[in-house]
Amino acid sequence: MIPGPFSYRKAASLEEAIALLQQYGGEAKVLSGGQSLIPMMKFRLAEPAVIVDINRIPGLDAIEERNGILAIGGLVREVALERSPLIRQRYPIIADTAEVVADPLVRNLATIGGNLAHGDPANDHPATMLALRAEVVARGPGGERVIPIDDFFVDTFTTALAPDEILTEIRIPAPPPRSGGAYMKFERKVGDYAVAAAAAFLVLDEAGKIARAGIGLTNVYYKPIRAEAAENALVGQVPSDGLFRTAAELAAQATDPTTDLRGPAEYKRAVARTMTLRALKAALSRAQVA
């Protein structure tokens, strides 16, 4: 578990980091928390020639609400999300998610930007961001662009980011009244990636019907997915156990998991259903008090 040879560059600014990425082309990799990249290098699954460390770049670690959105800097660590009063009070679904990522040692370093940019369907934040209809802000040689989350995850370990682009911010619409979300993950042990996990976000109208629904799923498809049919089944309906079961079943049908040590595909699909059901119930009870 010793990485191959590489050289290390520490960028002081976004401009410098982008210039370095341009200079080395596909040979270079951005280093954030390093909790996905470094293990892959140690197993020699990734052998980048150059590491561009962006940890010293100022201004990428803020969590703030402005103009009806929540903006989370790309370098915000999991531990900061877990502890942020703003996140805990207004966005408990994000706190749910951060808390079940890996273990405390990893969470002290791992960043939300890296969690999305890695493009790993096993990572937890993508599902939540899909359920919340987030946007990803990227900076590259040509300036800044905003990518809707639905366009962000392209393939396993592949996102819409170009090799010389840096994820700088994640934007999430501020929660409307009567909304609530929850993330439910089933893992074999703490620190494990999900057998299956589900993020659910619900907005109720004044009559108590579901006005908007978001459901994202973790580790049950070749990339993070949104369970669109399940969402559609919920909208316009009065929440009930039966309705949630139908939606959970639709979510399970949207999955295409692989059989591995976490269990057979059929099992993972069943767990996706259970997690969706439980996430919907938790989201509803939060929406009803919000």
């Binding site: 074999r188 057998v195 976490r262 269990g263 057979p264 099992y267 069943a270 767990v271």
Partner: peptide, 15 residues
């Protein structure tokens, strides 16, 4: 494991 036990629950109709 959960996967092994769940399979038994399915077989016994209690999943």
């Amino acid at each position: 494991t959960p996967a092994k036990l769940y399979q038994i629950l399915v077989e016994k109709g209690v999943a």
